[in-house]
Computed example of a mutant assay.
Amino acid sequence: MTDDVRNVQEALSTITEHWQPHRLTSLNDYDVKVVKLQGEFVWHTHPETDELFMVVTGRLTIQLRDRDVVLDPGDVFVVPRGVEHCPKATEEVHAVLFEPKGTVNTGDAGGEMTAALQELD
């Protein structure tokens, strides 16, 4: 996988479910994931790591306890480790995430929205 050229738009076109991250590639100890988002996720933290969101299409709101961060296409935002957050997308958003391998999408919250990382075909 690391020797192949990967196309973000092509990869996103294969995803059918929201909030189900797919590994696009890996870099050192990090996964680069693509995901489609719509609706509101769960409030959670990642106690051991930062989480980077990069919006490809759509508008993503990352709710923090003290403010909302709104991301448009091309915008990047890093949620610092341990900061409680809740992503929300009124319309479908396509995004890229950068996280250490093994990072669970629901962080410390767990629950029914926890997704196993999927591989792209």
Results as ranks from 00 to 15, higher is better:
Met1Thr: 10
Thr2Ala: 11
Thr2Arg: 10
Asp3Thr: 10
Asp4His: 06
Asp4Val: 02
Val8Ser: 13
Glu10Asn: 14
Ala11Phe: 01
Ala11Gly: 15
Ala11Asn: 13
Leu12Thr: 10
Ser13Ala: 03
Ser13Glu: 08
Ser13Gly: 08
Ile15Cys: 01
Ile15Trp: 03
Thr16Lys: 15
Glu17Lys: 15
Glu17Gln: 14
Trp19Thr: 05
Trp19Tyr: 09
Trp19Cys: 04
Trp19Leu: 04
Pro21Gln: 06
Pro21His: 09
His22Ile: 06
His22Phe: 08
Arg23Glu: 12
Arg23Pro: 13
Leu24Gly: 13
Leu24Pro: 12
Thr25His: 11
Thr25Gly: 04
Ser26Val: 00
Leu27Ser: 00
Asn28Gln: 02
Asp29Tyr: 01
Asp29Asn: 14
Tyr30Asn: 13
Val32Ser: 07
Val32His: 10
Val35Trp: 01
Val35His: 07
Val35Arg: 06
Lys36Thr: 01
Leu37Thr: 07
Gln38Ala: 00
Gly39Leu: 12
Gly39Tyr: 13
Glu40Gly: 14
Val42Ile: 11
Val42Tyr: 03
Trp43Ser: 15
His44Cys: 11
Thr45Glu: 12
Thr45Trp: 09
His46Cys: 14
Glu51Tyr: 08
Glu51Ile: 05
Met54Gln: 15
Met54Asp: 06
Val56Trp: 10
Thr57Ile: 00
Gly58Trp: 10
Leu60His: 12
Leu60Trp: 01
Leu60Phe: 03
Ile62Met: 13
Ile62Gln: 11
Ile62Asn: 15
Leu64Met: 08
Arg65Met: 00
Arg67Val: 00
Asp68Val: 12
Asp68Lys: 14
Val70Cys: 05
Leu71Thr: 09
Leu71His: 11
Asp72Tyr: 06
Pro73Met: 11
Gly74Ala: 09
Gly74Glu: 07
Gly74Arg: 12
Val76Asn: 07
Val76Asp: 04
Phe77Met: 01
Val78His: 08
Val79Leu: 09
Gly82Gln: 08
Val83Phe: 05
His85Cys: 01
His85Lys: 01
Cys86Trp: 07
Pro87Met: 10
Pro87His: 13
Lys88Asp: 02
Ala89Thr: 10
Ala89Cys: 09
Thr90Asp: 09
Thr90Arg: 11
Glu91Thr: 00
Glu91Ile: 00
Glu92Cys: 02
Val93Tyr: 11
His94Arg: 08
His94Gly: 03
Ala95Ile: 08
Val96His: 08
Val96Tyr: 08
Phe98Gln: 02
Phe98Thr: 06
Glu99Pro: 03
Pro100His: 00
Pro100Asn: 05
Lys101Phe: 04
Lys101Asn: 03
Lys101Met: 02
Gly102Cys: 03
Thr103Phe: 11
Thr103Tyr: 14
Val104Phe: 02
Asn105Cys: 04
Asn105Lys: 02
Asn105Ser: 06
Gly107Val: 05
Asp108Glu: 08
Ala109Cys: 06
Gly110His: 07
Gly110Ala: 07
Glu112Lys: 15
Glu112Cys: 15
Glu112Arg: 15
Met113Ala: 10
Ala115His: 05
Ala115Asp: 05
Ala116Ile: 06
Ala116Phe: 00
Glu119His: 04
Glu119Ala: 00
Glu119Pro: 04
Leu120Asp: 13
Leu120Ser: 09
Leu120Arg: 10
Leu120Phe: 10
Asp121His: 14
